[in-house]
Amino acid sequence: MKKPILGYRRKMLLLPLFFLIPALLLYAVFFVYPFLFTFLLSFQQWDMISPERTFVGLENYAVLLDDEVFWKSMRNTLLYLLMTMPISIALGLGLALLMESLMRGRVVYRFLFYLPVVSPIAVIAIVWSLMYDDQRGIVNSLLMLFGIDGPNWLSDTSSSLWAVAIVGIWKGFGYEMLLYVSGLKSIDKGLYEAASIDGAGRWRRLVHIILPLLSPITLFIVIMGIISSFQNFALIKIMTGGGPNNSSNVLVYQLYQEAFQFFSIGKAAAISVILFAIILLITTVQLRLSRSTVHY
């Protein structure tokens, strides 16, 4: 009687390992090792080519803290998040509510609004670069119809980050919309009708019933939004190159510049480590907060 139980236990240990091995192996080679290596590199000075790497202690970090560009990139990374996330959540939620209340035509709208999400980012970046052209681009031509003299979007320090953020919003809100649509579909219709029989107005139903029920989705969106906005590389690389005067530089792009344009691998690695620390901090705080506010 004892033997099969032991065998079962052993199976329960070995089998999961068996199924996990491909993933774990790949993670070990292409994630854990590079990740630890990045930490090591952040304490060294290296140009990627010379055979020797010199240990410099915390110098790379000290240089960064003293680097004007780094602080700009840091500020822009956070600003970009603040510019894109509230607007795309509002757009996504608003459109989802609007569409779900329709009697017909949902599929068509859903198709349209989700199209930017599936479009190749490199293509999008080029198309928008041309749209932002100062005098003849379509963005300013359209603004002109409303009597607004648009800025020189990509060349002006005060508008370049917004220009990129608008593309980010355009590319992303469809994703949020779809998540909310699926959330709304799963809300119990009975609950909804009961509330309206109780005489709750639309607004109150929204605030007191729908939004709380959607809060896990909102949390998910916020976390995913943070992650993807921290990874915003292609748009910056293709549209602005971080310029003018670093007004649209962000941490991931500065990291790329340090590594592949200025050949300071150590400094690039130090940015990686800081980026990692920030993401860790934000997500931890997020999850802590969410425990008390999200309604399941």
């Binding site: 990740f35 590389f233 980026l275």
Partner: peptide, 8 residues
């Protein structure tokens, strides 16, 4: 972000 481990 994938950029964190880009170089290694």
């Amino acid at each position: 972000p994938m950029q964190v481990t880009l170089v290694p």
